[in-house]
Amino acid sequence: MSRETINFICTSFPGAEVSDPWGGGHDAWKIGGKMFASIGATTSGVAVKTDSVETSAMLIEMGVGTKAPYFHRSWILLPWDMEPGELRERLLQSYRLVRQGLPKKHQAELPDFPSG
């Protein structure tokens, strides 16, 4: 995996937008102004949001990823060498989690996306 692969996957999510809010070559993927994935300028993977601190801890314990530096404990850093299908699924879960947390009015203004 690479930054380009992550960006390609995230581009496919309806309403997803990328920015570099901190400067220096970071990619922060957002939906409705809320971040669901982040690639640091020099990190060896992509940070994604999980549904809880417990889920993040479990995934770290299972060896799926590591603690995402500078993020809340509910975020996990997924490595570049992750299997492509699993990586896409983890990005999609983070995207859906953040999208579902947006106010209903804002969700209604976004492009359609299956909730399944």
Score class of each variant (00 low, 15 high):
P14M: 05
V18I: 13
Y70E: 07
K67G: 02
R99L: 02
D51Y: 10
F13T: 02
I31A: 03
Q100I: 01
I60K: 02
L87E: 03
F71P: 06
K30P: 00
T11A: 15
T55C: 10
E54S: 13
E61D: 14
V64E: 08
I9K: 00
R96M: 14
D51M: 10
W29G: 03
A16K: 02
V46A: 03
E83I: 05
V46W: 07
K34G: 08
G45Y: 06
H26V: 15
F71C: 08
I31M: 01
W22S: 11
V46Y: 03
G25N: 09
E86G: 14
L92W: 12
P69C: 00
S56M: 06
P79C: 05
V48F: 02
F8E: 15
F13P: 06
I76D: 07
H72F: 11
I60M: 01
G85T: 13
C10M: 07
A68N: 08
K49I: 05
F36R: 00
A16P: 07
E54Q: 14
A47E: 05
Q93I: 02
M82A: 09
E86T: 15
I9N: 06
G65E: 03
L77C: 01
E83L: 09
R90V: 02
E86V: 13
Q100L: 14
A37E: 07
C10Q: 01
E83H: 11
A57G: 07
D81V: 09
S44K: 15
F8W: 13
Y95P: 05
M82R: 06
I9V: 12
S19E: 12
I76M: 03
G45F: 05
R88E: 15
D51K: 13
S94I: 07
R90T: 00
P14S: 04
Q100V: 02
I76G: 00
A37P: 08
R90S: 10
G23L: 04
F71E: 03
V18P: 00
L87A: 03
G24N: 10
L59H: 08
V18C: 13
G33W: 00
A57S: 11
F13E: 06
D51L: 11
G25A: 11
A16I: 06
L92H: 14
F36Y: 10
F36L: 01
G15D: 12
L87M: 15
A41I: 10
A57I: 05
W80L: 01
L87Y: 03
R88T: 12
A57R: 11
I76W: 08
T55F: 01
H26Y: 14
H26A: 13
L91Q: 00
G101C: 04
E17N: 10
L59D: 07
I76A: 02
T43N: 12
T66Y: 10
D81F: 13
A68E: 00
G85N: 13
D51A: 14
A47M: 12
P79G: 07
G25R: 11
W29S: 02
G65C: 05
P21S: 07
A37R: 02
